[in-house]
Amino acid sequence: MYQSILNFKRARYLWVALALSIVSIAAYWWHQPVGLPNGGTWLGYTLGTVGAMLIVWLLLLGMRKRSYRSNMGTVQGWTSAHVYLGTALLLVGTLHAGFQFGANVHTLAYVLMVVVIVSGFFGIFVYMRYPNLMTYNRSGDTLDGLLEKIHKVDDRSRRIANTPNLSRLVESAIDGCQIGGSWWQQLSGSGRSIMSVPFAMDPDAQEKAQSNKDHKLVIDVLANRLSQLGGGEEAGAVTSLLANFAAKQTLLRRIRRDVQIRAILKIWLYFHVPLSFGLLAALIAHVVVVFFYW
């Protein structure tokens, strides 16, 4: 109960992976091949076979994850084994190669394998670290709930704006507010918000679209406006709008952070999975080349 993939069933697959590693190292150390250690010795073939089978099995996690009716273990168990045996593969593959590298398809397969495994390490890191951060950032709310709050703040701002210029300012800031966007924008946690300031409030800007990053511009313009007004109804509205946009800024920061964390939790899979298919292709090429063209 309540265990992470690393200590699933008292880290049973850590022990399996350790056993595999120790056996591999012992065999490599004990084995005295003719010439340098390489993939062509009996131990090389054995380690290669184990490694290839491991790669195919590691890839099968994608299928097991989607076999929702399957009663073959739990997905958590599979993931735990995937992590530990995938790590052991790094050793098995390296010993299989006998530390011989070159500019060929064999080394390509090796490099892809290493990249896939390292991207997996990154995945474990984010899976361990980011769920907590996500919970902390959302503090009990949901993304939909936060977006709903933004809508409400916007509606309120629209109602508060009591001069045509304020209305245009508010409308422009709301229209130009962007959440999400490209992968890069999601990952960097900064939306590309833009707005134009009504001529009367900033003649220099010529009503051109400017960056409203982190809603700083709209807050600055409102603060300026407040300093120009010496009280009156509009000053009241501007004060309320300032409070509103400050609230929106806080909400947006939380939303962007949430979007960012979600993106980080997903992005590595966009490398890990396609690269593993690349690895599979390179592996097949490696095996075919070895058996037919050696």
Binding site: K65, Y68, R69, N71, V75
Partner: peptide, 18 residues
Amino acid sequence: DNAGGAACVRACPTGAAM
């Protein structure tokens, strides 16, 4: 009807669902 138990829990890759 699934002998293995609830699919939501079985399908959780990180063991968060219980």
